[in-house]
């Protein structure tokens, strides 16, 4: 169930591949692809923000739709 209002964004150029976001996402939405963050299943994101709050490199975040 993707969130109707929030959009999941990634910034692979800041990602160092630590895997924290992948480990703490409750819905297995994220994966590492060639050592960088990638959205594996956008439809499963519940916009809980677990990834954003624990990403040490600010490489994943949620925006309000139309925010950017």
């Amino acid at each position: 169930m993707a969130s109707p209002t929030k959009k999941l964004c990634v910034k692979p150029e800041w990602c160092k591949g630590c895997g924290i976001c992948v480990a703490f996402c409750p819905t297995e939405t994220l994966e590492l692809k060639n050592g960088k963050i990638s959205i594996a299943k956008p439809e499963s994101c519940v916009a809980c923000g677990m990834c954003e709050m624990r990403c040490p490199d600010y490489a994943v975040y949620l925006t309000e739709e139309g925010d950017n």
Binding site: E13, K16, C18, I20, R54, C55, P56, D57, A59
Partner: peptide, 12 residues
């Protein structure tokens, strides 16, 4: 990106 190592808690 900052210079901290991959997974360093300081960024959080």
């Amino acid at each position: 990106p900052h210079i901290w190592c991959p997974g360093c808690g300081h960024g959080i």
